[in-house]
């Protein structure tokens, strides 16, 4: 991609940052929280996309990292009196450590077996958190000291989202990202062409684990109470996957578009039909996997609106 395109894209991102930064005073409490959660889903979808879209290792258990982040924040703030911002750094670091420890064996599994193993990992993490009650208070959950925090969490999420977009953008348009794509397309051929697949996959996995943990921490602080079922909720993984797939996995803009569209649609419907939107999620996955595996962005590419490939 020519340099001026990068400059244009970075300027666009800066403009988005400015708009979102000056917006809060104009927003109602509800809208502020709506925008914050939209940003959170952008973070989650983009992160999932790094391992599952760029690298092709579909994770059905990414909520594990989100939950780990939420619990790190909750335990440190509620039981040890830390400042909540500093816990986010610990959350990110812990997620990376866990991702490397789990990823080293599990990333050896291919395609559907990786997906299933991750599903098991997330459930396993939830069970461990539930059982380990001396640390996590088990099924009782953890409450934070109640404070008004909607503005702090809004800005924290904004910063994390901008960082995630920037990282995803850099990864997507670098040779690192292209090598991840090569692993997705044909891991054996990629290795024969000099790509150390194990190292690349681990790096991608660690990156994709880091931001969800931070987002989970912020979310925990925002809602002031967490318990295992609420932060290890399978549906959060589904949302990440579905948003990426809808927008177009393996691209940078796709998951962002998917997250905004899907989260808005969900907000609009769930008030009236609490279960209906979940049913729609299930049906949506079937339709997208079956009929438009490349998502909306694939549509745009086929019509020539967007150029093929990440690097031009």
């Amino acid at each position: 991609m020519a340099t001026h395109e990068h400059v244009r894209n970075v300027l666009l991102l800066a403009a988005l940052a400015v708009v979102l930064a000056v917006l809060p005073p104009a927003l109602s409490v509800y809208l502020k929280s709506f925008v914050m959660f939209t940003m959170m889903y952008v973070v989650l979808a983009l992160s999932w996309n790094i391992i599952s879209g760029f690298t092709g290792y579909t994770s059905f258990g990414h909520v594990a990292f989100y939950g780990i982040g939420a619990y790190t924040c909750a335990v440190l703030v509620a039981d040890h009196g830390w400042h909540w911002i500093s816990t986010l750094v610990v959350a990110a670091a812990l997620a990376v450590v866990v991702a490397v420890a789990i990823g080293y064996p599990v990333l050896r599994l291919k395609g559907p077996y990786f997906a299933i193993a991750m599903l098991g990992t997330a459930e396993g993490t939830r069970v461990v958190v539930t059982v380990w009650d001396s640390l996590t208070h088990g099924g009782l959950g953890i409450s934070f000291p109640s404070v008004e925090n909607s503005l702090e969490t809004y800005y924290a999420m904004l910063v994390v989202m901008l960082m995630t977009i920037l990282v995803a953008y850099i990864v997507g348009h670098s040779r690192f990202g292209i090598r991840l794509n090569a692993i997705r397309e044909d891991e054996g051929a990629a290795e024969v062409l000099g790509i150390n697949a194990t190292a690349y996959k681990l790096a991608a996995f660690a990156l994709s684990a880091m931001f969800p943990a931070v987002a989970g921490g912020i979310q925990a602080y925002k809602v002031l109470y967490i318990d295992p079922p609420s932060v290890f909720f399978v549906q959060i993984t589904i949302a990440m996957a579905l948003m990426s797939m809808l927008g177009g996995k393996g691209t940078v803009i796709g998951p962002v578009v998917g997250a905004v569209l899907l989260y808005s649609a969900q907000e609009l419907t769930w008030v009236n039909f609490p279960t209906a939107h979940l049913i729609a999620y299930g049906l949506f996955i079937i339709v997208i996997a079956r009929f438009m595996p490349r998502g909306l962005i694939g549509f745009a590419i086929d019509r020539g609106w967007v150029r093929k490939g990440m690097v031009h």
């Binding site: 292209i178 794509n181 090569a182 397309e185 054996g188 062409l193 000099g194 490939g309």
Partner: peptide
């Protein structure tokens, strides 16, 4: 064994030292 859903240029660029 080309990388099918990558462009010709990307196929080349991923193989750099």
């Amino acid at each position: 064994r080309v990388f099918r859903e990558m462009t010709v240029l990307e196929n080349m660029l991923c193989v750099t030292a």
